[in-house]
Every structure is written in structure tokens, then in C-alpha cells.
Amino acid sequence: MTAGTRALPVQDGDAALIARSLREPEDFATVFDRHYPRIHGYVARRLGPGLADDVAAETFLVAFARRERYDLTHPDAGPWLYGIASNLISQHHRAEQRRYRAMARAGADEVSDGHAEEVAVRLDAQARRAPLAAALAGISKRDRDVLLLVAWAGLTSEEAGRALGIPAGTARSRLHRARKKIRAALDRTSPTTTTTGEDHRP
């Protein structure tokens, strides 16, 4: 048994499937089925639905071509796939910037149905959408990548660092810097609201 396989909790973990796919390429289809919906959803949030299909599909084409280089000590291929997706998203930097700026200009949508409490919650969320989008457009791409991998993809800062090929400490520093800017933007829209801790995410 190799050092890579010792870390696998189950026989059909992502790492085991990727290893087997070197001999049986069709085994990679299970990795695709497991992760495609989340990768597609993440890309759609960053670039919009118009580009999501192509970028998500290309993520798995790149992953398949690079599967020989996958680190088999990591059973979950999610961070690796999000890293590939992030690199592809960076090729659409201008489209992402335009998306956030359009959201910032649009402001809150009208809400005319639902119970009063639900409407109030939705209005509050929509009121924050514009400054959030403006703040996302205003932070550096490097900081935004880490922030959104944590906030939208659900990765830890360590996983985000691994996905982007940077040290965990660098990822934490970028995350902290990005969160400070996001909090400042949201606090300007809600002066009576205070935020504490590290769990307030866009």
C-alpha cells in the first residue's frame, strides 16, 4: 500500500477514482458527477449563467488532462477542482467585474409578495446586495479568489490556499483583508449593525 492510498477513507474516494482513471478513464465520470453541480454553481455566481456551462465543463476537461499530477494524499478532489475553476474564471476577469458593477448599479429589486417578516428579510438582503457587489468589484482578484472560495465554495482557508497554490498563511492573510473590506462596505449601509468574529460571509 502506498503513502497515497493510506489516506483514503473509502475505496471509492475521489483520489482512488482518479488513480483508477489512469487505467480506466471512465472512472473519472464519477468524480464529474459528484462535483459538477457545485463547480457549476460557483462559476455561475461569479460569472453569471451565460459563461457557467462552458467554464464548468472546461474545468473538468483540464482536470482530466492533469489527473496524473493529482496529489493522492487528498481524498477530496473539491479544492483541486475549485482551483482549476478559479484559474479559468481569471481569464474572464472583465466579465466578472462587469457583473459585480451591474449588480451594484441595479440596487434592490422590488418585493411585492410574501409575508411581512419574509419581505423585510428579503429587502434587507437586497439592500446589501449592491454594496456587496461594489465591494467585490473593488478588492483585488487575489483577495477575492480566497474570499469567495471560503464564502461561496465552502472551503477552509487552508483548502483555499491549496486550491490556489499558495501557503495557508497567505490565504488567511488575504481572507482577513478581503473580509475587512467587505464588512466595511456592509457596515456603511447598516450603521446600527455590528459584526464580530470570522463567520460573517457574503
Score class of each variant (00 low, 15 high):
F64M: 02
P37W: 04
R105Q: 03
L81Q: 14
T59W: 12
A168H: 00
L88V: 10
S173R: 15
P9D: 11
G83F: 05
K181N: 05
G107M: 12
K141C: 02
E68S: 14
E58F: 03
P79W: 13
Y100I: 12
I39R: 12
S190I: 05
S140L: 05
L72N: 02
L72K: 00
A133K: 01
G165T: 07
A137D: 07
R142T: 13
R188S: 01
R201N: 08
G114N: 06
R23L: 06
L8Q: 06
R45G: 07
V10L: 10
P202A: 10
A120M: 00
R122V: 10
R177H: 05
Y82P: 11
R46A: 08
V119G: 10
I39V: 10
A106N: 07
P75K: 08
V62H: 04
L22H: 06
A153P: 10
V111N: 05
M1N: 06
D199G: 12
L47M: 15
T5H: 06
A3R: 15
A160R: 04
P25K: 09
L51C: 05
I166A: 07
E117Y: 09
I18G: 05
A178I: 00
A116K: 15
A151M: 04
V31D: 00
A56R: 11
L164K: 09
A15M: 01
A29L: 13
I89A: 03
I84W: 02
S112G: 05
M103P: 01
E118I: 14
H74G: 04
Q126F: 11
